[in-house]
Measured scan of single mutants.
Amino acid sequence: EVYKVKIKIERVLPNGEKVEEEITIEVEGMSEEELLALARELAAEPGVRIKEIEIEKLPP
């Protein structure tokens, strides 16, 4: 199964400015739980906050 994972994050820059970013990846052969863990890892940097995680199962 192939999933499209869209992660919206908010990053706080050293000057205090907040910037929103969106990361989209396609992943194959992982469960939804593994995808959530991967998304959290991607956003685990200091000053980064996850705003939204969207997981979509793509048709075969």
Rank of each mutant, 00 (worst) to 15 (best):
L36F: 14
K51V: 14
I53M: 04
L36I: 14
K4L: 12
E52W: 13
L58F: 06
E32H: 12
I53E: 00
K8F: 10
V48M: 03
E1P: 12
E56W: 07
E28D: 07
E28M: 12
V12M: 04
P46L: 08
E56Q: 11
E32Y: 13
E56S: 09
K51D: 03
P60Q: 14
Y3Q: 02
I9K: 01
M30R: 14
A39I: 08
A43H: 06
E17P: 02
R11V: 03
G29T: 09
I7S: 00
P59E: 10
E33H: 11
E52P: 00
E41V: 10
V12D: 14
P60D: 10
I50M: 01
E26V: 14
E22G: 03
S31R: 07
I9T: 06
E34N: 14
I9V: 07
P46Y: 11
I23G: 00
E41G: 08
I9R: 02
K51F: 08
E1I: 14
L42E: 01
G29M: 06
I50H: 00
L42W: 12
K4T: 09
A37K: 14
V27W: 09
E1A: 15
V27M: 11
I23E: 01
E26I: 08
A44E: 07
E20N: 10
I9F: 07
L13I: 04
E10F: 02
L42V: 14
R40Y: 15
E41I: 10
K18S: 14
I7K: 00
N15W: 07
V2K: 15
A37H: 08
E17Q: 13
S31F: 10
A44L: 14
R49C: 11
P60N: 09
M30N: 13
E20L: 06
K8Q: 09
I23Y: 12
V48N: 03
N15R: 02
E28V: 13
V27Y: 11
E20H: 07
T24N: 07
L58E: 04
E1W: 09
E33D: 15
K57V: 12
E28C: 08
E21H: 04
N15A: 03
K57W: 09
A37T: 09
E45N: 03
L38A: 07
P60R: 00
I25N: 02
L35Q: 02
I9D: 00
E21F: 03
A39L: 13
E26Y: 04
L35W: 05
R40C: 04
E22P: 01
K6G: 01
L42F: 03
L36T: 08
